[in-house]
Nucleic acid binder design. Structure first.
Lengths: 362, 362
DNA sequence: AATTAGCACTCTCGGTCGTCGAGTGCTAAA
DNA sequence: TTTAGCACTCGACGACCGAGAGTGCTAATT
């Protein structure tokens, strides 16, 4: 679609003013914002053409115009200026990420809440494993004659343990047998291969009648299932209420309910490669509930074969540039933190759809 | 405050109708609900007296009446009928709790979301330790010449571990030294006593110059701090929007924001003993933000010296009986699950402020 | 051909006004 | 003590109206 430079800057202005004010933008306001000497009538006819092209629309006859989804799309693809993250925000992000390292179990929550605070939109964060996880090594620690600890080192370099309390005393020597046989038969295999047959064979080999083998095998299955499981977190839902498009309580509720369902979260749009920012605008969303909202998501490298995803959901009237910048910065920080690599620097990835002029901050 | 039986049942009726409809209740509606042959004029004069006593109030001259906080308080203390939990709800609770045992790290979230779903109000769940936690025992597992695992058994019967990757190879023999000295010097002591002096002394004793001792000691501190930390979860905030008293978005937002702050959560009203349900109505709340909301909370025994708290926040127009029943049932289930004891059966505790007539379900 | 001034037209927003109805309080009678 | 009757109050709701913002069109200008 060919657009004259003037039409482009009018479209850009309408988008940016509308993002800021949430009010339909009239021709006069555009002239003013452009600092142009054009008359409002001229701009008016241009805007009318932009409307015919489906880039702008009117809420009603006598109001100004607002961008259509197509208008936003064109803006995001071609008109949007990338910006640098503000120093303050960078500091907040860095210190939050540094501090979160200690609380790994709630890392996703932390990241989500950080993202949500910075962008003022609800945020979601997820991790999932891309590879197949197995156990690399077993150890058993004797505590007392009723108690021992199982320690398992997983193939993704995490360690899990379980304290086992038996109701009857056991012979400490059995722990050596367990160590030998579990390291021989249960390492390097995925969850599907921990079969009842294998467990029973192990029981016979160890000569165990007390059920210890079953307990340990149960722990193994639990671990492998858990390792496969994705982690997901959805934070900052209240923030939605800040934005006038969700003033309608029912609408806000519908969308929050939708996003609170982990099963739906995993279906949200997701960029293909780490570091890339994916912007999905209004009806481009597959989910019915998101047809008039937008999603901005970024992928990060969570170390090992773990991949992570952070995203933000808000009205189509969103400051895409700012949100993309924030997400991208956070993802970069997380990748660095968790995997020691920076996808944006190291590879072909780039923040898609974002120009590279620099208009500074704010 | 003496009240005739008739006035009591009028008050009860007003509360119950108002809880159901959220509309001010007129004298005629009361007569109807009571199935009484009294005339509305009689009820009217009774209601007028109840208003003089501060138990009812009028939103405006020509509307019906609604209970005042005092009215709710009297209702909760003396008029409310306890009820049994419905079979369906019991099944939901039991199966959710059983299923949650596996996902301990998110137990609080699960419990909160369960509570929130059943009551239709936002729920919070917390645990904290009442005792002082120390490490009972250390083990070190050799993985390879750069890598070892620290395993620590805490005094509350949980096990923690950490995988340590060094940049330079280490002598496996040092692990034995570490085992000996950490078990001798770092067990049974609280976090405050893990001082730099102790760490340096340990370093000298082991003859460590590579910083391994510092790493292990850092892990110890991290563990003890984390063990002291409370866990808190706030779930189901959207549910607030279901209730007409939070139709005002700003009001809803204020209260959700308030409850999203963990530091505030810990100050919410809390019953003194496990199993007891504590109901705090409107202005009885200390927090300014909760002056026109109510809180219902219950304490449970989380095993070891862990105590847990579940609570629900909603409008003063709340079905206290139903909420109390649900909370109490969930707390009972959790206590049983986590500590094997049932406080309601085993001790002096009772669900305070709840009568014992039985009006069945719903 | 592009731009502009001028103008009639459209539609929303906010305020005012009047009606309706639910519910009350009071009085006087039962 | 209870009740019927009645005047009164007040919010909810809808109709109406004027102001203001913005548009599209036309005719004149560059």
């Amino acid at each position: 679609m060919y657009l004259s430079e003037r039409k482009k800057s009018i479209l850009r202005t309408v988008v940016e003013l509308y993002v800021k004010t949430a009010e339909p933008i009239g021709s006069k306001a555009v002239v003013e914002a452009l600092g142009s000497t054009l008359s409002s009538a001229t701009v008016r006819s241009d805007m009318s053409e932009l409307e015919n092209l489906g880039l702008l629309e009117k809420p009603h006859t006598s109001a100004g115009r607002i961008p259509s989804s197509l208008g936003y799309r064109l803006y995001v693809n071609e008109l949007m200026l990338s910006r640098n993250i503000s120093n303050d925000d960078a500091i907040v992000i860095n210190s939050t990420l540094d501090g979160s390292l200690a609380v790994r179990p709630h890392l996703l929550d932390e990241v989500g809440s950080l993202t949500s605070r910075l962008t003022t939109y609800p945020a979601y964060a997820m991790t999932s494993s891309t590879g197949i996880i197995s156990i690399a090594r077993f150890d058993f620690i004797y505590v007392d004659s009723y108690t021992f600890i199982i320690v398992a080192l997983l193939s993704n370099d995490t360690v899990k343990n379980k304290l086992v309390h038996l109701t009857a005393p056991f012979d400490p020597k059995i722990l050596q047998k367990l160590t030998a046989i579990f390291n021989a038969s249960f390492t390097g295999i995925p969850e599907e291969r921990v079969t009842p047959t294998l467990i029973m064979a192990t029981e016979r080999a160890v000569g165990d009648t007390s059920g210890i083998v079953t307990i340990v095998a149960g722990f193994v299955i639990e671990l492998l299932v858990e390792a496969k499981a994705i982690g997901a977190s959805f934070t900052g839902a209240v923030n939605l209420l800040d934005h006038p498009e969700y003033r309608d309580i029912d609408k806000a509720q519908r969308i929050i309910r939708y996003l609170s369902d982990v099963n739906e979260l995993v279906r949200l749009p997701s960029p293909d490669i780490a570091g890339e920012v994916k912007i999905t605008i209004g009806p481009e969303n597959l989910a019915e509930q998101l047809k008039d909202s937008s999603v901005v998501a970024v992928r990060y490298d969570a170390g090992g074969d773990m991949q992570g995803l952070i995203g933000v959901v808000g009205p189509t009237r969103m400051d895409y540039s700012k949100v993309a910048t924030h997400l991208s910065y956070i993802a970069k920080g997380l990748s660095l933190l968790l995997s020691g690599t920076n996808p944006l620097v190291s590879g072909a990835a780039k923040t898609s759809k974002i120009g590279d002029e620099d208009i500074g901050e704010n």
